[in-house]
Computed example of a mutant assay.
Amino acid sequence: MIHVVRTMLVSRTMRDAAAYFADFAHAEEWDPATVSCVRLDQGPVGPGSRWRNVSRFRGRTSELSYRLDVREVDRLVFTGENGSVLVTDDLRFTPVSADSTRLTYSATFGFKGIARLAAPFLRKEVDRLAGDIADALPRVTAR
């Protein structure tokens, strides 16, 4: 299992930041590894909403099914899964000022089957990916 945490400042109110990130389709904008992310259901975004996310990791493309598990005023939790990995993204929002929010982004990667053997070798790449997100996210949310 690999766990990474990044904390960054976003130029949005806590309410606006949480609403933006609740729609996981926006991962196309803030996650440099995401190739596409499409919502699979309709209606208001809430617990149970689902997305198909295609990402590029280590030069390979993989598809994960994501679900929003928790939607609170100051927290979002998504679970993404395919045959090789279970990913939990936990986003926590703390107001800093009237128009800025501290976002603490935690991701846990639990590898399945034979992929578990590769986990120790993937830590560096997962850390790089988390760093890329931390670099991109504040720029994207300032728009």
Score class of each variant (00 low, 15 high):
residue 79 T to H: 08
residue 84 S to I: 14
residue 72 E to W: 08
residue 93 F to C: 02
residue 61 T to N: 06
residue 90 D to P: 05
residue 87 V to D: 11
residue 82 N to R: 03
residue 93 F to Q: 14
residue 88 T to N: 03
residue 88 T to M: 07
residue 82 N to I: 00
residue 77 V to E: 13
residue 79 T to K: 08
residue 58 R to K: 15
residue 81 E to R: 15
residue 75 R to A: 10
residue 67 R to I: 04
residue 80 G to C: 00
residue 56 R to F: 02
residue 66 Y to T: 08
residue 53 N to S: 12
residue 64 L to I: 10
residue 82 N to A: 03
residue 84 S to W: 13
residue 62 S to C: 08
residue 69 D to T: 03
residue 70 V to L: 14
residue 81 E to F: 09
residue 64 L to K: 07
residue 81 E to A: 15
residue 69 D to F: 00
residue 76 L to N: 11
residue 71 R to S: 08
residue 72 E to V: 00
residue 86 L to Y: 06
residue 82 N to F: 01
residue 77 V to C: 03
residue 87 V to M: 11
residue 60 R to W: 06
residue 74 D to E: 15
residue 91 L to H: 15
residue 58 R to N: 14
residue 70 V to P: 06
residue 55 S to L: 04
residue 55 S to T: 04
residue 87 V to R: 14
residue 72 E to Q: 12
residue 54 V to I: 15
residue 58 R to S: 10
residue 84 S to N: 15
residue 68 L to C: 13
residue 77 V to I: 13
residue 87 V to W: 07
residue 78 F to H: 06
residue 64 L to M: 12
residue 75 R to T: 07
residue 78 F to P: 03
residue 73 V to G: 07
residue 68 L to S: 00
residue 85 V to H: 07
residue 90 D to Q: 05
residue 70 V to N: 13
residue 77 V to T: 14
residue 60 R to D: 05
residue 88 T to R: 15
residue 76 L to I: 03
residue 80 G to T: 08
residue 73 V to H: 12
residue 70 V to W: 13
residue 58 R to A: 13
residue 86 L to D: 10
residue 75 R to W: 04
residue 52 R to F: 00
residue 57 F to Y: 03
residue 83 G to N: 10
residue 56 R to C: 05
residue 90 D to G: 04
residue 71 R to V: 05
residue 66 Y to I: 03
residue 68 L to Q: 11
residue 87 V to L: 12
residue 82 N to L: 04
residue 77 V to K: 15
residue 70 V to C: 02
residue 84 S to F: 14
residue 75 R to D: 07
residue 63 E to M: 07
residue 68 L to A: 11
residue 74 D to R: 14
residue 72 E to T: 02
residue 62 S to A: 11
residue 85 V to P: 05
residue 75 R to N: 06
residue 67 R to S: 07
residue 93 F to L: 09
residue 87 V to T: 14
residue 71 R to Y: 08
residue 61 T to Y: 01
residue 81 E to N: 12
residue 79 T to I: 10
residue 62 S to G: 13
residue 61 T to R: 13
residue 53 N to F: 03
residue 58 R to C: 09
residue 60 R to F: 01
residue 62 S to P: 05
residue 74 D to T: 13
residue 68 L to P: 00
residue 59 G to R: 02
residue 54 V to E: 14
residue 75 R to F: 03
residue 82 N to P: 04
residue 62 S to F: 05
residue 53 N to P: 01
residue 90 D to W: 01
residue 53 N to V: 06
residue 67 R to Y: 00
residue 85 V to E: 08
residue 71 R to Q: 13
residue 85 V to A: 10
residue 80 G to V: 05
residue 52 R to T: 06
residue 84 S to G: 09
residue 72 E to M: 02
residue 83 G to A: 10
residue 66 Y to A: 08
residue 57 F to P: 04
residue 82 N to D: 05
residue 69 D to K: 13
residue 67 R to P: 01
